[in-house]
């Protein structure tokens, strides 16, 4: 598999970032290098090896359903670029 400019553009779109033409070319190159490395790994026989998503053996970590205080509204909104009557104010979204 090879990554082309369109795929890089699509990934950029999904990640909500804007790339310059130069950056696009750079990422095509970098991502292809990564895939090249992965392809090498793919040559290994992993037929009987379960995919590993977790590196630790720990499981079943829970908390009890007990209330903890929330934070004050002024702290909640402190970093918000825009607010209105206790809400975060964001550019209009319509579906």
């Amino acid at each position: 598999m090879k990554i082309d400019k369109d795929q890089v553009e699509n990934i950029a779109k999904l990640s909500r970032i804007r790339l310059t033409e130069l950056e696009r070319e750079m990422f095509v190159h970098q991502l292809n290098n990564i895939l090249f490395y992965i392809e090498k790994l793919n040559k290994l026989d992993t037929e009987n090896v379960a995919p590993m998503a977790y590196t630790s053996d720990v499981s079943n970590v829970f908390r009890e359903d007990k209330l903890k205080p929330s934070i004050p509204l002024q702290d909640v909104l402190i970093n918000a670029p825009a607010t209105k009557s206790g809400f975060f104010k964001v550019p209009k979204v319509i579906e």
């Binding site: 359903d65 007990k66 209330l67 929330s70 934070i71 509204l73 909640v76």
Partner: peptide
């Protein structure tokens, strides 16, 4: 029907003032 949220201890109570049941985790 839990009292608190899935990943933090904030209340799930319905109908309270906006953004008063939030914490760094759910934000």
């Amino acid at each position: 029907a839990t009292i608190t949220k899935l990943f933090c201890g904030c209340s799930t109570k319905f109908g309270v003032e906006p953004n008063t049941q939030v914490c760094p985790v759910c934000l």
